[in-house]
Write a protein that binds this DNA or RNA. Structure first.
Length: 259
DNA sequence: CTCCATGTTTAGAA
DNA sequence: CTTCTAAACATGGA
């Protein structure tokens, strides 16, 4: 479940449970979760070490190893860190298991294996090399306006473009557009509407975090609880439209979301 | 069996 | 150069 709010929840979980414990085992259950690092190199980098801090930028996580190296995670579509209690069975779809002194362990589960595990020497350099843009929650209004202006493409794919703004995914992009009354296919938005959109993005992400990224706890005025076939707009009751835009399914209200 | 899925990258076409 | 689409990755769930 990984867009910015979920990844931030994952970061907090890792921060609470994975830091400051000596790593006593590293088991790669499925090598396909590894990207440009071998199981052997991963073990060498982690064995006997501790993780000492957890950062998030957009949808990416960086766990600092006390050697100075960083373990870099992307949760893909189905990735999630789990900390089994003693005696629990290993979670299904565990692709990587990091065992800590004392018996605790981090199991990285990922059914579809779209997630990534890497090592990097510098998160900043890594982000720059990959062309990842500013984090959605740290980006200021002017930077957002600048990155969204002067292009002719539809607004939805622009919001999903991690080089422009990092952290929004298909669901929260739909939610921010819904809250700001903008059709996902709108183009060349004027400054005032982009400002509205910027505020909606901040509001939506903060609200989601306040709900611990749990859809059921979002306000009923939000799109997400209604975002399914047959769903109705909570604002005016209209049947929600469903359409493929930029290869992703979009839901929007045909009445109050304007081009 | 068919279709769809909270992500990213790439190839090729307008 | 910009923009868009489809496909690929791999797997489960409805």
């Amino acid at each position: 479940m990984p867009e910015l709010p979920e990844v931030e929840m994952a970061r907090r979980l890792l921060e609470a449970k994975a830091l400051h414990h000596k790593i006593t085992s590293v088991d790669v259950r499925d090598w396909r979760i590894l990207n440009s690092v071998s199981a052997q190199d991963l073990k060498r980098a982690l064995a006997g070490r501790q993780l000492c801090s957890a950062l998030r930028h957009g949808k990416r996580l960086f766990l600092q190893i006390d050697s100075g190296l960083w373990l870099t995670l992307h949760l893909g579509m189905t990735g999630w860190p789990v900390f089994p209690e003693k005696g629990d069975e290993e979670p299904r779809y565990t692709r990587l298991r990091i065992g800590f002194e004392g018996g605790a362990a981090l199991a990285l589960q990922d059914a579809r294996i779209f997630g990534e595990v890497r090592l990097t020497e510098s998160p900043q350099e890594f982000l720059a090399r990959r062309g990842i843009g500013p984090d959605a929650l740290q980006m200021d209004r002017e930077a957002f306006l600048a990155s969204m202006s002067g292009r002719k493409r539809k607004i939805k794919p622009a919001l999903l473009d991690q080089s422009l703004i990092a952290g929004l995914g298909n669901l929260y992009a739909d939610e921010a557009l819904f809250q700001s009354g903008i059709c996902p296919q709108a183009r060349c938005l004027k400054r005032e509407r982009l400002e509205t959109l910027y505020s909606a993005i901040q509001e939506v992400l903060r609200t989601s975090l306040a709900s611990n990224a749990h859809f059921e706890k979002l306000p009923d005025t939000y799109l997400l609880p209604h975002r399914h076939l047959g769903g109705a707009c909570p604002r005016d009751g209209a049947a929600l439209q469903r359409k493929k835009i930029a290869g992703r399914t979009s839901y929007y209200c045909p009445l109050h979301q304007k081009k």
